[in-house]
């Protein structure tokens, strides 16, 4: 292993400029891929988040018995599609109304008892629940103590279509960007080795084993991939942090920060790039050996 490190170091010292430039190009290609991937991923997540905001509103009759209300909550919660049920009492509804109207004269005479309390029902995956929502709301509207059930079906359908479009767009877009990235990485590794073609040929002619020639090159390529991934993902993280601040408050449904790659995704991406660099290096160096 010590010999491999020393041969790799010697190899690097031969053409440091080429190795550094190649690493930066790989990092750039990977940054473009991971940034767009992250953005597509966030757009889909954002759509889902908005859909979750469009909850099912179950209006209860004023002064409904709390026992009946609790029973109804329990029944709704039993449904596997339901994520959460929140009870909004009449007093809270009135507060919300006061917030909505600038002219407080309009709401000053309204008594809380006059307003219906509401159950806000949110779903784990609103798009998955879309087909069942109508039946569910009809079923709930017949329950004792329920005045009316409302949900924004048309908006949910529109959002579901947007999500579908984004998914298709993401898959095809990322496929193309991914292909371009793979092409750039392989080409850069191959070109950096093409510079060494004569040396590799001479080494193989004087009796160097394929392992002696290829191992340091493959090791360096793997290291390049690792370094490029590190640079690229750090860059994307800083971009994401900047965007978090820049777009805060732009969208009503967007409250939190943008999502970043999860740990397993980061590891997979890094391993993928390292594997790609190693394979490209192995293939290119093998071409120049004369056995």
């Amino acid at each position: 292993m010590r010999k491999l490190f020393s041969r790799a170091a010697k190899e690097f010292r031969t053409t440091p400029g080429t190795y550094i430039a190649a690493t930066l190009i790989i990092a750039l290609g990977l940054t473009v891929f991971s940034f767009f991937g992250l953005m597509y991923f966030n757009l889909i997540h954002f759509t889902e988040q908005i859909a979750r905001e469009l909850v099912l509103n179950v209006y209860l009759a004023p002064k409904t018995d709390p026992v009946i209300t609790q029973k109804l909550i329990n029944e709704i919660e039993k449904n596997q599609l339901v994520a959460q049920v929140s009870f909004v009492p009449s007093t809270k509804v009135l507060e919300e109304l006061k917030h909505l109207f600038e002219d407080q004269e309009l709401v000053k005479d309204i008594k809380p008892d006059f307003l219906p309390p509401v159950l806000l029902v949110s779903f784990k995956d609103p798009f998955l629940a879309l087909n069942k929502l109508k039946d569910f709301s009809e079923y709930l509207s017949q329950k004792k103590g329920v005045l009316k059930v409302q949900f924004a079906q048309s908006w949910l359908v529109k959002l579901a279509n947007i999500k579908k479009f984004l998914e298709i767009f993401s898959v095809s877009g990322l496929f193309l960007v991914g292909l371009a990235t793979i092409f750039v990485i392989s080409l850069v590794v191959r070109l950096s080795l093409a510079q060494r073609q004569k040396e590799l040929e001479v080494l193989s002619l004087v009796g160097a084993t394929p392992g002696f020639i290829q191992n340091p090159l493959i090791f360096l390529s793997g290291l390049q991939g690792l370094l490029a991934s590190g640079i690229s993902l750090t860059l994307v993280y800083f971009l994401k942090t900047y965007l978090d601040k820049a777009i805060k408050g732009f969208f009503p449904g967007f409250t939190g920060s943008l999502l970043f790659w999860e740990k397993w995704q980061l590891i997979s991406l890094t391993l993928g790039v390292v594997l790609l660099c190693v394979t490209a290096s192995y293939g290119a160096s093998r071409r120049y050996l004369r056995y």
Partner: peptide, 22 residues
């Protein structure tokens, strides 16, 4: 075999017409 060729070449010296020097 491909793996044995380097060891064969260590037994055979070759002075190339175009030198093949670095």
């Amino acid at each position: 075999s491909r793996k044995e060729i380097p060891y064969l070449r260590r037994k055979i010296g070759f002075v190339f017409q175009d030198f093949k020097l670095l």
